[in-house]
Every structure is written in structure tokens, then in C-alpha cells.
Amino acid sequence: MTNNTDYRISDIMTCAISNMLQDNETVFHGVSSHLPMVAMKLAKSMHAPDLVHLNIPGGVNPGSIQHSSYSSAGAELLGTGEAYFPLQEVFDLSMRGKLDVAFLGGIQFDINGNVNASVIGNYHKPKVRLPGGAGSAVLIPTAKKAIIWRTKHDKRTFVEKVDFTTTRGNLWRIVTPLCVFEFRHGKLHLESIHPTSSLEEVQENTGFELIYDKLKYTSLPTKQELQMLKKIDPHDYRSIEF
């Protein structure tokens, strides 16, 4: 019998994100977004063949992601694409309510759905100055569903109150190495715990009191999903952030 600890966190997160995506959705990922990029390719290969894959270089439905460079913004994503759709058009698409899903990042999150990607500490004299809003400030408020992934889950990431609000609200899901959060009724709710974790571990690593209706566990990757991941991501880009 296979133990839950035999499953890699990167595979659990990739498959969980893939299963959030639906056929015929238009989905965008940005730079340094290997895990969602692989999840999008997995969804197209398994259950969502007509999902539309948009990315930073502008390639629509790239034929391959196997050599898409360390940044997930390589020329292959454009060169093997079916069409060209530049970044400014992605922003316009989202503001017109036509972008179904956008994958975005952040450094701090609080229970009210505030996202910090700007500074750690005081804004005028920060301990760390971060990249800032960039696409998040536009896409989180305007995309139909904003999914954030984060490869660290600790009390410095999930805080009682963010140091600076880069953007807020309109989140859909946050996927971490421990769990999945759902944003509803203005609060982050614990949607599911990964079978490799526990409620106690999630709470110990979260800076606010967890809200949940019923304890659920994230589905483990299937044999078919794992086989497809080896095929579409032989260089294991999905694990590059861990």
C-alpha cells in the first residue's frame, strides 16, 4: 500500500490546480510560473482539451513546454503557439471580463484576502522591497477567478494583517504545500488539507485562526496524472520553486 508521504508536494499542488481548470476556459500565467504552466498543460492533456493557454511571451496554446526556460517565459511558448496574443491584450481581455482564470503570486496574505507583493515592513523604510503589483494589481480585481500558488506556507506568509495591501478581494483559491484556501464571504476559508499534512500543521503555520465548515482532504494525484506529468514535464519544472 502506498503511503501518502510517498507523494511529492509539487505533484499534489500541480494536480490540484489542474483539476480547478475547466474546458473552454481562457487561462493566463505569467513569468516564474512553472507550476501553474505545467498544471495548465496537464488540464489540456487530461480533461480540458479546449482550454486556451495564454502566457507572458504571447503564445496561444503552445505545443510544448518542455524547453520553456527557467522563467516560464521562454521563446518556445511563443514559437510553438497557435497564435500571438501579447500581454497588453491579456490585460484588456481581463478588464473586459473575458479572462476566466489568472495565476498570480504574492508574499503575504491575510484572512481578509489582502495580498502584499510590495514591501515587508514599513512602506517608507521597508526591510525588503518586493517587485510590486505588476499584473496582480490589474488581474486580481478583474479576472473571473484569480488563483494564487505559494510554495511556502508559514506564519510569515499567512499573517494576521499584511504589511502593505498591493491588491485585495476577488481571490478564488490559494494553493500551498499544506492546503487549499477558498476566498468567500470576504474571508479565507480552509477548503481542503493535503493528505500529506494535517489540520494541526496548517494551524501551526498560519498566523490567523482557520475558518472551515467541514474538514476535507485534497485528492491525491492519480496514476494517469502522474504518467502524464512525466510526459509533458520531463525536466520537472513544476518542482523548480521547492
Rank of each mutant, 00 (worst) to 15 (best):
R184I: 06
S71Q: 10
V52M: 11
I148C: 02
I240L: 13
G132N: 06
V159Q: 00
I56M: 15
L99C: 08
S68I: 07
L226D: 07
I107A: 10
G207L: 04
I211N: 09
K161V: 03
G81A: 09
R173W: 08
D110N: 14
K145Q: 11
P49N: 09
T165Y: 12
V101L: 00
R150H: 09
V38F: 10
G135M: 12
Q227S: 15
G169V: 01
E201Y: 12
K152V: 12
L215P: 00
Q224N: 12
A16E: 15
L21P: 12
P195H: 02
A73T: 07
I148H: 02
L210T: 05
I140G: 00
V31E: 14
V162T: 02
E209Y: 00
L93H: 08
S71I: 08
D92N: 12
G186A: 04
G58K: 02
T176F: 02
S72F: 00
F85Q: 01
P62V: 00
N114V: 09
T222N: 01
A73S: 15
D6Y: 01
M37C: 13
G132V: 00
G133W: 02
V101G: 03
N19R: 15
N205H: 11
D236H: 14
P62R: 04
H153E: 12
W149E: 12
R238V: 05
Y212L: 08
L130T: 04
S33H: 05
L42W: 09
K125V: 14
F158E: 03
L93A: 05
R184A: 01
F158T: 00
T166D: 13
L51T: 01
H153S: 10
D213Q: 06
I211A: 14
K231P: 12
G106A: 01
G79S: 11
P86G: 08
A102R: 11
L99F: 04
Q66D: 13
D110E: 04
P36N: 04
V175C: 04
L178W: 00
A43T: 10
T151I: 08
R168S: 15
K144S: 06
T26K: 08
R150L: 11
F208A: 00
F103H: 13
L178P: 01
A117G: 11
W149H: 14
L190R: 06
R129K: 15
M228Y: 04
I147P: 03
F85C: 00
M37S: 13
E82N: 13
L130M: 07
G63A: 10
F158D: 00
S239I: 07
D110M: 05
T5H: 15
R150P: 14
V175N: 06
D23Y: 06
P234W: 02
K230C: 09
Q203W: 09
P49T: 09
A102I: 10
F164N: 04
T218S: 01
N4D: 11
G59I: 08
S71Y: 14
H189K: 08
E200L: 10
I174M: 06
H53S: 08
K231R: 12
E160D: 08
N116T: 01
V175D: 07
P36H: 05
A39P: 06
M1R: 02
G30M: 01
